[in-house]
Structure formats: structure tokens, C-alpha cells
């Protein structure tokens, strides 16, 4: 497969996943804004949300005030924000368009239709759009495309590169989502057991559609340890860091087998997986959750670079 084709497939998948994460963050932010703040008025987590996407400064430059409408626009419709849902879907569709012939018509159709729908949405008066409609639309679209990929794409190297794009982006995004809220997971005497504490934790689970997964997997009270375990170390939970890294490994193994040639990308991925699977929640809290997540994001990004070097730049390994 042409390296450039593989590169477009890989980025198409990354942008799709990124669109979904942005919409999840938007959902969490909007939901948090409905909770009363103990210090009076309502809570405002928007700055944390923007920080997680690394766009707080650009946002302030353009809009100044962190009011909800501005943030919704910024995160959903604003093409100046490279991480907005609109930017991500456009980028995903642009990548897909270039390599249309590497996709089944079903997959292309799904992506292209979403793009056309989004153009319609842009024309609707903003006051007529509920933020939940927007986030639900985005997630439904992402599920649809992934479903089409899974149901119709040939399991060749192109499929594997899409898979790697998805799993690398997801690992990164899950880590960032946890990081927005890392302070609520830190055991702190003043918060433990308070109603606020509980609802904050519930919100984090909700942002990853993980409430049921949590209840099915753990008994008893919600605790920081259990949540951290679910989101970081639980191989059964499809958005956990460990699951994501495992998929990256699986896809790289497939490619190595296909090409009858192992690479350092494959080795790096397995190394990351081994390190992560040996970790415990206590280790993570000892290191500091924030520090741990930062370190993970950097290693995952390093792995992404290796994949690019080995396969996507067309320079023989």
C-alpha cells in the first residue's frame, strides 16, 4: 500500500476519534454547568475542558469571555479551532476523499453524508440547536463510521492503519479526559463522601459512557481507585488506556505478519503495553495521577511518531 494512502487512512481515523472526544468534552462541560457550586451559583469547568484540548489561549484570544454559548461555538462549529467537531469532521472527510478508493463505498458514504449533514447544521440558527443534539449527532456519526469500517472493510493493511489511528488517538484522548478531572480522583479528606465528590466522579464516567461498565465490573461504592482502574487498567473496558494500547499492538502485529517483517514500531507498542499491564492503581497514585498521565501521553505520542517513521513516510525502515 502507498505510504501516503496509509497516512490518509491513519489520520482519517484519528480525526474521527478526535471529533468524538471533543463532543464528549462538550457534553461534560455542559452537564457540569448544570450543577450547583458549593461556593454559590453554578460550577464552571469550561476552562478545564479547554485546557484538556490545549486551546484555552486561542479561545480567550478570540472570544475573551468563557460563556457557554461561545464555548459551544468554539468546540463545535469554529473552523479556527483545529480540534472543533467541525474541523475534525472536515479533516476526516478530506483525508477520506483523497483515498476514497481505499475505502468501501459504505464507509465513504457514511463519512460524506455526515459532512453534508454538518453543512446543513451550520445553516440552522444557533438558538434552535441544543448542545445535547450536537453531541449526540457527533457520537452517532462516529459510531456509524466505525461500524461501517468494521462491517465492510477488507482486513488488509489499510484496515490495520485505520485501527492504529483510532487506538492511538483514543489512548491519548482518554488520558486527556481523565487529566481534566484528575483532581477529583485524588483522595482528599475534605471531599470524600460528599455529594459533590460523587457527582463529579459520575460525570467522568458519563463522559466515557462508562456508568454501566463501572457497575458491571465493580461492586460497592464508587471510589477513585476503582474509577482509575476502569479507565486506565481494565482490559475489558474499550476506552481504557490498556485496551487502546492493546489494539495498537494487535494491529501492528497484523501488519508485521502481513508483510512478514517485524518493526521497531511493533516492539515499542509491546513495550508500552507490558509496562502498563504491570502497573497497579497504587503505583499510579504514588507517582501522581497527573504525572502518570503526562508520561503516558508522551510515550503514546512517541509511539505514533515511530509508526509514522516506519510506515507512513515511505522511507524504508
Amino acid at each position: 500500500m502507498l505510504s501516503r494512502t496509509a497516512d490518509h487512512l491513519y489520520w482519517m481515523a484519528r480525526y474521527l476519534e478526535r471529533a468524538e472526544t471533543t463532543s464528549r468534552l462538550l457534553e461534560v462541560g455542559a452537564r457540569t454547568a448544570l450543577l450547583p457550586d458549593p461556593s454559590g451559583g453554578y460550577r464552571n469547568d469550561w476552562e478545564a475542558v479547554l485546557q484538556a484540548k490545549g486551546t484555552l489561549e486561542e479561545f480567550k484570544e478570540k472570544y475573551g469571555d468563557t460563556n457557554q454559548r461561545n464555548i459551544e461555538t468554539w468546540l463545535f462549529f469554529d473552523s479556527d479551532n483545529p480540534a472543533s467537531v467541525l474541523s475534525c469532521i472536515n479533516a476526516a472527510r478530506e483525508n477520506a476523499r483523497v483515498v476514497r478508493t481505499a475505502l468501501t463505498s459504505t464507509v465513504w458514504d457514511a463519512i460524506n453524508s455526515a459532512y453534508q449533514e454538518l453543512k446543513q447544521l451550520q445553516r440552522v440558527e444557533r438558538s434552535k440547536l441544543m448542545v445535547t443534539d450536537l453531541t449526540e449527532w457527533t457520537q452517532r456519526f462516529c459510531h456509524l463510521v466505525r461500524g461501517c469500517i468494521s462491517a465492510t472493510q477488507l482486513r488488509n493493511d489499510g484496515y490495520a492503519f485505520m485501527g492504529i489511528g483510532t487506538s492511538i488517538e483514543r489512548a491519548d484522548n482518554t488520558a486527556r479526559l481523565i487529566d481534566v478531572k484528575y483532581y477529583v480522583l485524588l483522595p482528599s479528606l475534605s471531599y470524600v463522601g460528599s455529594g459533590l465528590d460523587q457527582s463529579q466522579w459520575a460525570l467522568l464516567l458519563q463522559s466515557m459512557t462508562a456508568q454501566r461498565a463501572f457497575n458491571w465490573s465493580y461492586s460497592g461504592e464508587i471510589t477513585a481507585q476503582k474509577i482509575a482502574h476502569l479507565l486506565i487498567l481494565n482490559r475489558k473496558f474499550p476506552r481504557s488506556l490498556l485496551s487502546s494500547v492493546q489494539w495498537t499492538c494487535d494491529h501492528l502485529d497484523d501488519i508485521a505478519q502481513n508483510y512478514a517483517n517485524g518493526t521497531r514500531a511493533q516492539q515499542d507498542a509491546h513495550q508500552l503495553f507490558d509496562d502498563l499491564s504491570r502497573a497497579t492503581v497504587d503505583d499510579i497514585f504514588d507517582e501522581g495521577l497527573h504525572e502518570f498521565l503526562q508520561r503516558f501521553v508522551a510515550r503514546n505520542a512517541g509511539l505514533a511518531n515511530t509508526v509514522q517513521d516506519v510506515y507512513l513516510r515511505g522511507i524504508p525502515a
Binding site: 500500500m1 508483510y259 517483517n261 515511505g314
Partner: peptide
């Protein structure tokens, strides 16, 4: 054009498996 390069007597394309 960026997918192709010349080396020796031939034209090659850059693929995920090498030239």
C-alpha cells in the same frame, strides 16, 4: 509526484513495505 522517486535505472513508489 511525492509518492514516486528515481533511484538507479528505475522509478519507485513509496509504500508501507518499502520501495
Amino acid at each position: 509526484g511525492q509518492d514516486l522517486f528515481v533511484e538507479g535505472d528505475f522509478v519507485w513508489m513509496k509504500t508501507t513495505e518499502g520501495p
